[in-house]
Measured scan of single mutants.
Amino acid sequence: CHSECLGNCSQPDDPTKCVACRNFYLDGRCVETCPPPYYHFQDWRCVNFSFCQDLHHKCKNSRRQGCHQYVIHNNKCIPECPSGYTMNSSNLLCTPCLGPCPKVCHLLEGEKTIDSVTSAQELRGCTVINGSLIINIRGGNNLAAELEANLGLIEEISGYLKIRRSYALVSLSFFRKLRLIRGETLEIGNYSFYALDNQNLRQLWDWSKHNLTITQGKLFFHYNPKLCLSEIHKMEEVSGTKGRQERNDIALKTNGDQASCENELLKFSYIRTSFDKILLRWEPYWPPDFRDLLGFMLFYKEAPYQNVTEFDGQDACGSNSWTVVDIDPPLRSNDPKSQNHPGWLMRGLKPWTQYAIFVKTLVTFSDERRTYGAKSDIIYVQTDATNPSVPLDPISVSNSSSQIILKWKPPSDPNGNITHYLVFWERQAEDSELFELDYCLKGLKLPSRTWSPPFESEDSQKHNQSEYEDSAGECCSCPKTDSQILKELEESSFRKTFEDYLHNVVFVPRKT
């Protein structure tokens, strides 16, 4: 048989008469490798580009789960590009990614509803959504962080984005990388972005840091009482949809009607710091009717980097990364020049730590249904340095008659930039024990000054392991946590139920 035959053949030295091919099969003959313009397919066939392209389009058009959109890589027609490569849609070739590779997620039936953290986790790592997304989240724990972890990498949506009755959302900033909504599939009414009845939605994105392009379709905003109209108009300008909307697409009466839409800028007039305090004062603000001013709200939190936005980490279910302080308005003076500047002394802060701070007014709604208010920009203030805590785990070892090696770990709280350490030492008198000992005694162990690591005695271990207080009263049991108490109650309830079950099964009433 021919060298490319495997198993047997019907005619000697003829690659077209093989029972099976050793390498690849091409047009009725066995070959060692697939010549151009053919590609290896499933490690035994040679196919042309049209064959591989037909497989790709067949799966793409069917949208069946589990099928493969075949691509070409290293002269092979394979189910998908290997790690580190992405497909070129024009020629199906796998090309190296520039940075992290995109991950295209194809949605069944063309859309997916995100109504819980669990459903959001199914899209973790996706960068391109081939379909439409509907966000409908009523509640949950730590929602802002969970949504950002699972949806934060999405850069492109081919269909539309719909935010509907998501009472738990305060902001859409968890879509931190969303840059493009194509609108290839539109919501009824030709809408590519749809926001309806979101009672706590206050911000779409921080438009000073976020760009969003909507290729096709219109915007729809109705019944978002805490979303200011200025935020919607800003989205029109940034996304390129200005002029597409009709009169009733953006409701003037049901958007922002319960919001404090600040239209003035508060400026800080005085800032002073110490290692654990920050004193702030800002310019006074009074609405047209000074009785509408209820006070100020001061927001602050630790910020290692200057990239904080107002609604980071917030949701309507209680999660809030900001510390909020309510401040009463100052006494009002008739003389504008003698107006008191409101302020606040922030206490209990960490030394040498940068804080993000902003302040906003708290006002009631005027009778004319106009909203007044003022808010400052987010500023960054760093507390002063102070003395560091003591170095940890000092170790001293003498390696000769004239040297001592000293080692330690950095302090747990540096409280500033540590530039150097101060080492103090003092000579001590020799131990009298060394002169009084009889060095001729056998088995004498000389006193040693070398360091030995501390260890816990058996008594201390027994005390720590004991669940009861000892007789001397030195140790006591740790208080039980809520989960331990709940577990004990469940076990007790189970024992009672099981005992009742045994009584009912074992003891049967005697027939009379």
Rank of each mutant, 00 (worst) to 15 (best):
T254G: 13
S401I: 10
A303Y: 14
T383R: 00
R291H: 04
D335Y: 15
V324I: 04
C317F: 15
V381Y: 02
S119D: 13
L180N: 04
T361N: 05
S158N: 06
T371L: 13
P391M: 05
G243F: 08
P330E: 10
K337A: 13
L153P: 07
C261R: 03
S401L: 04
K301M: 13
D367L: 11
D292V: 04
K162P: 00
K253A: 07
S400V: 07
T241S: 09
I278N: 00
P284A: 14
T127K: 10
K218R: 11
E187F: 12
L212P: 03
V359R: 00
S398N: 15
L212M: 06
L293V: 05
E148K: 09
L151I: 05
R369I: 14
D115S: 07
E231N: 02
D384H: 14
K350W: 04
S398M: 02
V104A: 08
G256T: 01
K360T: 03
G373W: 07
I214K: 00
G139N: 11
I379P: 00
V104K: 08
L153D: 03
D393I: 04
S321E: 13
I379L: 09
K242E: 15
P388I: 05
D367Y: 14
V397L: 06
E264K: 04
G140P: 13
I163H: 01
P351D: 02
H210R: 14
Q199P: 08
V397A: 11
N255P: 05
K407G: 05
T371P: 10
R176K: 13
P351W: 02
N387I: 09
S116G: 15
N263K: 10
L143I: 15
T127C: 05
T113L: 10
E310F: 04
S269T: 08
T353P: 00
L161K: 00
L172Y: 01
L153N: 11
L219W: 09
N340T: 14
E122Q: 05
L406F: 13
G152V: 02
E155H: 14
K407M: 14
P394M: 09
S376L: 00
G110C: 07
D115T: 09
I404M: 13
Y194H: 11
G348I: 01
G256H: 03
I327S: 02
W322L: 02
M346C: 05
L229D: 06
S116Q: 02
K112L: 13
L293H: 06
R247C: 07
Q258V: 12
S398Q: 13
S321Q: 14
T254S: 07
F193Y: 03
N334R: 14
E236A: 11
L204S: 05
T213Q: 12
A259C: 14
P287K: 04
S173N: 12
A144D: 03
E156R: 02
P391L: 05
P288S: 11
L133T: 01
T213Y: 07
S119C: 13
Y223W: 09
I181Y: 00
R370V: 10
K234C: 12
E122Y: 07
K301R: 12
G256M: 06
A259T: 11
P336T: 09
G313A: 09
T383K: 00
L201N: 00
N340W: 13
V397F: 12
V128T: 12
D384C: 05
A316R: 15
G256S: 08
E187Y: 03
L186S: 11
N387S: 04
H210Y: 15
P304F: 08
L406V: 15
R179Q: 06
V363E: 02
Q403C: 11
Y372Q: 06
N263A: 12
R164H: 15
P329E: 05
K350M: 11
K177N: 15
Y300Q: 05
V324F: 09
Q314L: 14
N150R: 08
L294G: 14
E237D: 15
C228S: 02
G295T: 04
C126F: 01
W207P: 03
K112H: 14
F358D: 01
E236P: 02
R370S: 06
S132H: 05
L108D: 00
Y380V: 07
L201K: 00
G110Y: 12
E187W: 15
N141K: 12
T127E: 00
P351V: 07
E368M: 11
V381T: 04
L133V: 12
I154S: 01
V397I: 14
K234H: 13
Q258C: 04
N211A: 13
L266H: 01
K277S: 06
L279E: 15
V170E: 10
F174K: 00
D197M: 06
Y305P: 10
K407R: 09
L107P: 13
Y191W: 06
Q245Y: 06
L392A: 09
C317L: 10
Q314R: 15
G140M: 03
I232F: 01
T113H: 14
S230W: 04
P284S: 03
L143Q: 15
S338V: 13
A356T: 03
K218V: 14
Q382R: 11
A356I: 07
